[in-house]
Design a protein around this nucleic acid. Structure first.
Lengths: 264, 264
DNA sequence: CAGTGGTCTAGACCACAAT
DNA sequence: TTGTGGTCTAGACCACTGG
């Protein structure tokens, strides 16, 4: 319906054709597609062109490519819902959820929780400026703490905290693990943290996050960021969480009672 | 820091190298990168390898590739914030915002608003099952209304509504435009719609949405979906909005007063 | 081992934007 | 017209997975 000039590139035609067959149920979830050489021969195009089409579908999360094995039609995504009551403020939105990672059976979680991967005093990256603006202080007075939420060996959330270096607990270090880092920080600072604001947005994974999360660059991530403040309202902590797009969804409920239909 | 087996592919080394120089401010926003043949010669690799690296950075939204012109370092994203008061329920979260599209100067909006692009009675796609589950009715009794939010000629939101075909206003059709479609539907049904729930998640653009929004397949989209119900609490309308990731962010404020620091 | 997808090369033609 | 990025080919070697 939308754009339609001249003829679309071959790889797009191929991708759309396959996508259509997937949508129609003609290629149900789990189906193995023909191998790249086979498709290449079948459609009379170069293997690279086939690969380009496959890359489209993979980015659209329609197929899963397994090296050395084959490519398969993906099942529809199932997300974990993290429910938020819009009336009760200061609820800790989705801080300690345990989430079943997709990818099927056979995953034995050997560790669940938040793990610190880096503590960097001083400016050290792309988001320091924003953090400084949100916390209304110079960027060079801030430290950044990076953590991941693990389930088993796989990370499903990467997390960055910014706070004044002066407030950073000295005993905090990499490979320090387990438990709620926010609570840890809050106790170390002797402050009760309150929510100021939280925001939701979507970004593509940058090269680093993609690496940490084990997803391709540009993969959709759900970002939840915000500022926490002390009892006087002074901003103390800026948090920026990047969650694998397929993993979670935040839900706001507006009606009372146990209105539990087949909701999210 | 994370993964590090053997040596990374050339295209990744190249991409990371450039990304590092961008992050360091060595290649400020707006800088034009050398052309593909130039980079190809400079690093002694094939042009396709260079292109693969470029594709990585483009998916990471670090660079912008302009056909026939060149590739340029992107400025940091600036989002429009759509603020939500978590205490006031049933507020219409971000329904009628007008948003300045990125991409620089020279865009004269000739039309802003919601425009219907398709009205399809009966099952017609991938999300019909979910819609039916949310509305607790058979999928073949539902109709789907697709709309886009335009600014000028560019779409920044694609929207799908599901409701009982029996409730669909007969005078609703494609190229029907302007105004708030939800209000229109609500009036036609003679029902006051209330929020049941709304959820936020991130997905990659599928082939269709990518086409409509003019973004590459797999681009991060912020999804806001939910169910509206009538006064008795019966689910009536399921909405699924896909918003270009770079365009918007939803903000929840938890503190009272005019706490307007350099917030989101 | 054979088959799969992942990377890379060399070369070609095209559509597009600026001049 | 020139130079840019977009598509496509033919062929090669590799790393991984499974039996």
């Amino acid at each position: 319906m939308p754009k339609n000039q001249r003829s679309a590139p071959v790889y797009l035609q191929l991708a759309r054709g396959l996508q259509r067959r997937i949508d129609a149920g003609e290629l149900p979830a789990g189906t193995r597609l023909p191998s790249e050489p086979e498709l290449s021969a079948e459609f009379g195009v170069n293997r690279l062109t086939v690969r380009q089409a496959m890359a489209e579908l993979e980015r659209a999360a329609s197929i899963e490519v397994r090296r050395g094995v084959g490519t398969f039609v993906r099942p529809p995504v199932t997300r974990v819902s993290i429910t938020v009551d819009p009336r009760s403020q200061r609820v800790d939105i989705g801080s300690t959820q345990s989430v079943p990672l997709d990818g099927g059976p056979g995953r034995e979680p050997d560790f669940d929780g938040e793990r610190i991967v880096a503590v960097r005093p001083g400016p050290s990256g792309r988001h320091d400026q924003e953090a400084a603006a949100h916390l209304r202080c110079p960027a060079d007075e801030l430290s950044r703490v990076d953590t991941v939420f693990l389930q088993g060996t796989a990370a499903w959330v990467v997390n960055s905290y910014w706070l004044l270096t002066a407030r950073l607990p000295p005993d905090l270090g990499p490979s320090d693990s387990l438990g709620n880092v926010v609570r840890r920080l809050s106790e170390a600072m002797g402050i009760t943290l309150e929510y100021d604001w939280r925001a939701f947005s979507a970004v593509g994974a940058d090269v680093d996050d993609a690496d940490t999360l084990g997803v391709p660059t540009g993969s959709p991530l759900l970002v939840r960021e915000g500022v926490s403040c002390d009892a006087t309202g002074a901003p103390v902590l800026y948090v920026r969480r990047r969650i694998r797009g397929e993993s979670a969804r935040f839900v706001l409920r507006f009606r009372d009672g146990a209105e539990t239909g087949p909701c999210p």
